[in-house]
Computed example of a mutant assay.
Amino acid sequence: MAIHRIGRRQTLRAALAATVVAGTGIGGIGGARAAESGGHLPPVPGMRGDRLANEFWYVLDDTTLFHRSQELDDAYTAIRTYAGGLEAPVIQAWVTRYNQPGYPGTFRDWMAPIAEQLRLLSEVQLGVVDRFYRRRDPRLVTAFAGFGQGTLYDPRRPEPALSVHTMNGEAGYHAWHVYARAMALLGIDRRRWEEIGPLLGFAWALQSIAKPSTSSPNPPLPPRTVVEQAAYWLPRGIERQDADFQSYPYPAGTGPSPLG
């Protein structure tokens, strides 16, 4: 695939490919350096996959779902009241406006009334990211790669049927893309969400191929597959990501049906 943009996304892609080839764990391969990435964290009996990535997703879920603050819960309620739900209605609003004249401004304007709630969501989510990873940290690619493939098995999760850190539900990646798009359009941590956006598509593609179990450890995809998806997704600009996410539930070429 020809790469037309050179910058931090291409650098991230190159870092991913180099790490996979070196066998340091992004493809679920394992190895000493993968273990070292979470070396400061206490071991968890039965845990599988990158230790740091497991901790990141565990804390993200705990913060945004299982033990969220009252302030965040109120934000969810406000979004749900405005949009009619947290996922499907927001995705449909985005799809409708994407396919009409005036996008992306029309979608930005539709999301503007809940900008303060989105600002809180961004603060909470990026706060967890920053707790574990530096800006443009290649290890964050590791975390999204493991999440997509379902190689992060964490026995601490409250529901045994969801012991694997991976997206639960077909609409999850679309919803995350749409919220990230809205936050960027509204000037809420725009650069951060433009950096994270390609990782969402990357993990979505890997999960679409792997179709991992949510309850038991999953084998990693072949490293070549991971590198190929990284080469496609990590340099993607935001407009191309929008076009890619018009497929549902899987990316084009893996059995999608069009949204609309």
Rank of each mutant, 00 (worst) to 15 (best):
residue 138 P to T: 11
residue 194 E to T: 05
residue 68 R to H: 13
residue 66 F to N: 12
residue 148 G to W: 10
residue 7 G to W: 00
residue 10 Q to E: 15
residue 90 V to S: 03
residue 100 Q to S: 13
residue 150 G to V: 00
residue 151 T to I: 13
residue 172 G to L: 11
residue 217 P to S: 00
residue 67 H to L: 10
residue 102 G to L: 02
residue 223 P to D: 07
residue 40 H to R: 08
residue 79 I to V: 15
residue 70 Q to R: 12
residue 142 T to N: 15
residue 47 M to G: 06
residue 22 A to L: 11
residue 166 T to L: 01
residue 124 V to M: 03
residue 202 F to I: 05
residue 31 G to F: 02
residue 44 V to G: 04
residue 64 T to F: 00
residue 222 P to G: 12
residue 186 L to Y: 02
residue 206 L to W: 05
residue 174 H to W: 08
residue 18 A to D: 15
residue 105 G to I: 02
residue 82 Y to N: 04
residue 106 T to V: 08
residue 188 I to C: 04
residue 101 P to Q: 01
residue 139 R to V: 13
residue 27 G to Q: 02
residue 24 T to K: 09
residue 91 I to S: 09
residue 179 Y to E: 04
residue 170 E to W: 13
residue 173 Y to F: 15
residue 36 E to G: 05
residue 130 D to Q: 10
residue 16 L to A: 01
residue 256 P to D: 06
residue 109 D to H: 11
residue 219 P to Q: 14
residue 111 M to C: 15
residue 27 G to Y: 07
residue 123 E to Q: 11
residue 118 L to F: 05
residue 190 R to T: 08
residue 50 D to Y: 02
residue 80 R to W: 05
residue 238 I to G: 06
residue 8 R to G: 08
residue 127 G to Q: 07
residue 258 P to Y: 01
residue 14 A to C: 10
residue 140 L to H: 06
residue 32 A to G: 10
residue 236 R to N: 10
residue 72 L to A: 06
residue 100 Q to D: 12
residue 7 G to A: 06
residue 76 Y to L: 01
residue 230 A to F: 04
residue 122 S to R: 05
residue 139 R to W: 14
residue 172 G to V: 02
residue 158 P to K: 01
residue 251 P to Q: 12
residue 116 E to Y: 04
residue 19 T to G: 14
residue 11 T to D: 15
residue 249 P to H: 07
residue 237 G to M: 02
residue 193 W to N: 04
residue 158 P to I: 00
residue 216 S to F: 07
residue 251 P to R: 05
residue 49 G to D: 00
residue 35 A to R: 14
residue 175 A to V: 00
residue 185 L to I: 04
residue 63 T to V: 09
residue 24 T to Y: 13
residue 126 L to D: 10
residue 208 S to M: 09
residue 176 W to H: 03
residue 2 A to D: 13
residue 245 F to V: 01
residue 16 L to H: 08
residue 222 P to C: 02
residue 30 G to T: 06
residue 132 F to G: 05
residue 13 R to M: 14
residue 195 E to R: 00
residue 214 T to D: 13
residue 100 Q to E: 15
residue 27 G to W: 01
residue 211 K to I: 02
residue 159 E to T: 12
residue 44 V to I: 10
residue 91 I to A: 07
residue 87 E to V: 01
residue 108 R to M: 10
residue 71 E to Q: 14
residue 231 A to Q: 12
residue 101 P to L: 07
residue 33 R to I: 14
residue 87 E to L: 13
residue 257 S to W: 10
residue 203 A to S: 12
residue 178 V to Q: 07
residue 216 S to L: 06
residue 138 P to M: 08
residue 110 W to H: 06
residue 111 M to A: 11
residue 19 T to W: 11
residue 112 A to S: 15
residue 17 A to T: 12
residue 236 R to T: 09
residue 258 P to W: 04
residue 90 V to A: 12
residue 19 T to L: 12
residue 201 G to K: 08
residue 82 Y to M: 07
residue 202 F to W: 04
residue 260 G to N: 07
residue 84 G to C: 05
residue 220 P to Y: 07
residue 180 A to G: 11
residue 189 D to W: 00
residue 68 R to M: 11
residue 208 S to Q: 06
residue 225 T to A: 11
residue 39 G to H: 04
residue 196 I to C: 02
residue 231 A to T: 02
residue 28 G to T: 01
residue 1 M to P: 06
residue 87 E to Q: 15
residue 150 G to L: 04
residue 112 A to P: 03
residue 247 S to Y: 10
residue 196 I to F: 09
residue 236 R to W: 00
residue 204 W to C: 08
residue 90 V to D: 09
residue 80 R to G: 14
residue 134 R to S: 14
